[in-house]
Nucleic acid binder design. Structure first.
Lengths: 194, 194
DNA sequence: CTTGGTTTTGAACGAGTGTTCAGATAATCG
DNA sequence: CGATTATCTGAACACTCGTTCAAAACCAAG
């Protein structure tokens, strides 16, 4: 049986996922064939089916696991709202910077998910948004923030932060920590923080 | 000769573009076949080649024309920096709201452009960013804005504004004008405007 | 109606798709 | 060692892909 502890799948399985992640991110799900993924792993196409029931499940697993990791890694949102928001901003930029391929896929390949799979991933994304919105609402209630609409502010902040991934590259003009500082400054002011 | 004034192409050409725009936006360039575009127009696949030399050019023309329209519609950036920025914010949200499919394609299908075509579209996008950056730099120089890095602020503002297209739908809880008000408020504060 | 040009069809081409599976190979274990 | 799994190959299946092109259909002008 495939996927048994101690079997080859412990090594080849992750290699299939890594290759799929990289290729899906670079060329898009629809443009990547199972044969290309197999070639990247150094195997024939048929062998991939020991590690995934089909191509769609391979995509879905990558996206769901990414969202699950994201939620599991969320920092605590205790303390005052402003510092919770700061922690969130720095976390979002840092976490996304560490996984550019998974982030890219999670945004770009949503439309290639079958409806049931889409619903699962969408629910996870909603939970992430809700985490930020709770921080903003608390800050608004406490008078620390001035946001007329917490839902819009949530989406605006996430869009702004996720945009970092489209241009930031380590080794460039700025260090990641500087980018985090600058964005935290912009986010803090955008929500009317002191 | 095809594409002659007064010929059928005056009607069918735009219909091909409209169908391609809608289908590319919904399912992605790689997932849409020429046969499906043809079916949407009510014609056989071979007939499409009277209106485009190939599928790639069809995509490229849609993206380049979108970017050209965007640049041509940019509002004047005269007057003080704050009001120029306000005009830009309202314009960006409004213009993008009117062309959700073209906007979506312009963001999602960049990787499906052949290198030469990509370079052209990328240069147009850069000109758009430069327009906003000039406003921010002027505001920073005049002391109207407090932005430590105009390039980052430019990308952050555009990312935030473009995000509107992912959730806003006419007829929902908010009117477009309200969304423009809210975003202008957030943008103004994020750049340290008074 | 005929002429001449434009547009569309419908078939064909060569290549590539996801997926299956019998048989070969490799690894593990008593 | 032989026996038993686990894994992989390589071919096959039934489509679909973008694109081409001769022949047919359509259309406006003379």
């Amino acid at each position: 049986m495939a996927r048994t502890a101690g079997s080859h799948s412990d090594i080849t399985g992750p290699r299939v996922r890594d290759a799929a992640l990289r290729l899906f991110a670079r060329d898009g799900y629809a443009a990547v064939s199972m044969r290309r993924i197999a070639g990247e792993v150094g195997v024939q196409a048929g062998a991939l089916y020991n590690y995934t029931p089909d191509k769609q499940t391979l995509l879905f697993d990558l996206m769901r696991d990414h969202m699950t990791d994201l939620l599991a890694a969320l920092p605590d949102h205790g303390g005052d709202a402003a510092s919770a928001l700061e922690r969130f901003v720095r976390f979002h930029i840092g976490f996304h910077h560490d996984r550019p391929d998974a982030v890219f896929i999670a945004y770009m390949e949503l439309r290639n998910l079958e409806p049931d799979n889409f619903a699962v991933v969408e629910a996870l994304r909603r939970r992430y948004e809700d985490h930020l919105e709770a921080i903003l609402r608390r800050g608004a209630d406490e008078g620390a923030f001035a946001v007329p609409d917490t839902k819009i502010a949530t989406l605006a902040v996430i869009a702004m932060l996720t945009g970092v991934n489209t241009w930031f590259r380590a080794g460039g003009r700025l260090r990641l920590a500087e980018v985090q500082d600058i964005y935290w400054d912009m986010v803090r002011r955008s929500v009317g923080g002191r």
